[in-house]
Write a protein that binds this DNA or RNA. Structure first.
Lengths: 193, 193
DNA sequence: ATGACGACTGTACACCTGTCAAGTATGGCG
DNA sequence: CGCCATACTTGACAGGTGTACAGTCGTCAT
């Protein structure tokens, strides 16, 4: 009584299942769980299928990362088109699972050089977009007493969000509330209510 | 011709060699290289000695972390006793190998719960010390228009330093210069030249 | 000199890692 | 019908992981 031999699922479907399983794995168990067998088990397929769809683990992790980035990009784009783009961006950085996952990618980047390269590239892209936005806002408002340069503000927003996520992971919370208040106050310079 | 049977080295010496090898390993190769055999090889001893001196890898990593913290504490204490403690602290956070190593500990903390616990504890201790310092400075200078609370400034200084180290690891630099300028300017409020 | 003890070695275990080669089933197309 | 590319399975590889435990050797106190 062999179970399911009518290959109902297409290539794309199984491939996607693997990518999603890997993604969820990173969210819920972190980089140590990023292994062929555990990901396959979570996707409900045999481990060898991972290498059927991806040449190597490096291939898989890069693919997963790019999917993360694509999702993030959509939301990022959406957020930046809204009425208070910087506030929306800050909210994104703090709350999105794609942002939380970054720390796992950082850990995996030590093992997979091509992931590191991909992270640098997309990181720089996002920063460039944000710098453009901030400079545009500054120009529109005629901000001469901005507390920092546009690249610095972009870096600050992701740095603080990320650092708070890291510390939160370890169980530290002190100073976070004050930090959020500081960011809100800073953003108010660019985007008053 | 068996080589070195006169056990010249005492227990403490070999133990220390292992701790130092593990520490260096984290600096130079990162968390994936934190394994029994590679650490032993670097220390120039047989792998089995790791478990002779440490019950488990978790024991070792916690010990290594605590040594890191102790070293950091000494320099931290020293820096905070100087003429411009906040500037010195910022310099420490940006440049010390003990600070750079933190990201590796973060990665390892996903595997070793006791490391996580140790990190939370010492992290909170350092923050408490810094909060005290900042509040003292604020009181002395009668700062009423401080840009953020004391815990927030403490968190900000480590968050920004850490984030810049992470991004630097991946190869990103944009915004860092402006970020440093921002921190310098902020610190000038507390510690004018 | 004998025995205890601390430092270290030899050998081994069970498990997990990524990766590969060869085989089998399936649905669609001629 | 027979062919064939696609989707998947079987079985296995060489190497790595942490950990255990019984020995052996050297030093020192008795």
């Amino acid at each position: 009584m062999v179970a399911n031999r009518g290959y109902a699922s297409t290539s794309a479907a199984t491939r996607l299942k693997l990518i999603e399983a890997a993604s969820d794995m990173l969210d819920e168990e972190g980089h140590p769980a990023f292994t062929v067998r555990r990901i396959a088990a979570r996707a409900g397929v045999k481990p060898q299928l991972v290498h059927y769809y991806f040449r190597s683990m490096e291939d898989l992790v890069v693919t997963v990362f790019q999917r993360s980035s694509a999702t993030y990009f959509r939301l990022h784009d959406e957020a930046l088109s809204g009425p208070r783009p910087l506030h929306a961006l800050w909210h994104l950085n703090c709350n999105l699972p794609e942002a939380r996952r970054v720390m796992e990618y950082v850990a995996l980047a030590k093992i997979y050089p091509r992931l590191r390269e991909a992270m640098r590239e997309t990181g720089e892209n996002f920063r460039a977009i944000q710098v453009d936005l901030i400079e545009r806002i500054s120009a529109e408002r005629g901000l001469v007493d901005a507390p920092m340069t546009a690249p610095a503000l972009s870096a600050l927003l992701s740095a603080l969000a990320r650092a708070m996520l890291i510390e939160g992971n370890v169980g530290m919370e002190e100073g976070h509330e004050g930090l959020r208040a500081f960011v809100e106050a800073t953003l108010k310079i660019y985007e008053p209510d």
